[in-house]
Design a protein around this nucleic acid. Structure first.
Lengths: 238, 238
DNA sequence: CAGTGGTCTAGACCACTTG
DNA sequence: AAGTGGTCTAGACCACTGA
């Protein structure tokens, strides 16, 4: 026969079988799984199909594979979860709330030594600088303090950021290739506390993100969220 | 010919070509990419190879595919980054530092109504409760307040958590299948402030995580980190 | 209808590891 | 040498879309 019964999602059958065996503890972490040849025989499918199942489980971090040796249940010590850092506007809109943005500053500055180093530019090079406060149904939830590389977004200062967020605009003009970020708890700066309308002593969730496009640093942003008004959420499967 | 030159990682050539075209803006977000047939011809490879390249780009969130229509450059609005929440011990050890754990409490409690609901158990059901402080070279960096479902880890109370972290132990006895978490900034509770040796008013990074195994809630944990002593890091490619 | 992606096969050659 | 995974082919059938 050529194709026995058409697409029956055979690779999913194999994948599910292995996933359930791992989840149920039938195969313990570090233990060896059946070889591709064994699974090929057991399921009566081609090796490519078994290979895809195992490859995807590997990509999902559930299985480790060693050429010439075999496939093994991964040691799931780390919980690598997908944290979705979405555009504020989308996040607020998704809750059915009203998003407002207030531009408090939009200027051109000369890079300090530290800033120049981060942008891989010369000290004193021009940078755009913006400070924008985002509100959810009128409540200030984020203060966005951003530096932008003019080489990547020459028209940055001409945008109306009450209508389109900088995140959205920058993703349009400079396709994202890499991002690095840190998340920590801090007190707001005096200016941030004033702009967010919160006491100086209240904790804030601070996300700092550096975004690259084609190896160039496009923008570095500090996002300050009042502790009681904003929270990151995520989940992890498998 | 059967195989022209052995593994030359053809699917990577196709993948790289598309990835660079997207990153360089040659294909804009929403724009249509060449069909599998066109790529098959252009690269002189089989369709399976092209298919793998496109499928992986789709799995990475860079390409959207619609059956019967075509493949398109994804709208990269969301920045879905892989945040690695590792075991404290590993994280501290990875820096070459000394990890110490201090067990402040290890008891059995009756579930409150809210706790019972979260664990999908009856109010008053038994739960294990532990409070452990983790130190990095003697500095308290995390207060771990944890509830555990006895059905998943009956021997929880018999463990020596100065030697093996609860995270590590629980992953051994109850393979992880799903986790949900939130990250926010808060002040520590009076007890947490005391255990961590920090002022009440200092901000903390608080991670709350609910872990499931085989559809059962295994554990709910609150991880409190002094603001200046701990930070989450992550990065995102493509 | 033609074109697209989704899946699958039954082989193949190769690099690698272990006995 | 035998077994493993890594890659690849040249076909195939199918479901879906849009003109």
């Amino acid at each position: 026969m050529v194709v026995p019964s058409g697409p029956a999602f055979q690779y999913l059958k194999v994948k599910t079988h292995l996933r359930e065996g791992i989840a149920s503890g039938r195969w313990r972490p570090g233990e060896r799984l059946p070889s591709e040849a064994e699974l090929t025989e057991a399921f009566g499918v081609s090796r490519m199909t078994v290979n895809r199942a195992l490859r995807e489980l590997h990509q999902e971090g559930m299985v480790e594979r060693v050429q010439g040796v075999g496939s093994f249940v991964a040691q799931l010590h780390r919980i690598a979860s997908t944290l979705t850092v979405r555009d504020v506007h989308d996040e607020i809109a998704a809750r059915g709330h009203q998003h407002e943005a207030q531009v408090h500053l939009l200027e051109e500055v000369a890079a300090t030594e530290a800033q120049a180093a981060e942008f891989q530019l010369q000290p004193g090079a021009r940078l755009f600088h913006s400070i924008i406060v985002h509100r959810d149904n009128g409540v200030a939830v984020q203060c966005e303090d951003r530096l932008v590389n003019p080489a990547c977004a020459p028209d940055y200062q001409a945008q109306d950021f009450t209508q389109v967020t900088p995140t959205h605009y920058l993703l349009e003009v400079a396709p994202l290739s890499e991002a690095r970020y840190t998340i920590e708890a801090q007190r707001p700066s005096p200016l941030e506390a004033k702009l967010l309308g919160m006491p100086r002593g209240e904790p804030c969730l601070v996300v700092r993100r550096c975004t690259l496009s084609l190896g160039q640093v496009v923008t570095v942003v500090r996002l300050v969220h009042p502790g009681g008004r904003w929270m990151l959420q995520g989940s992890f499967q498998a």
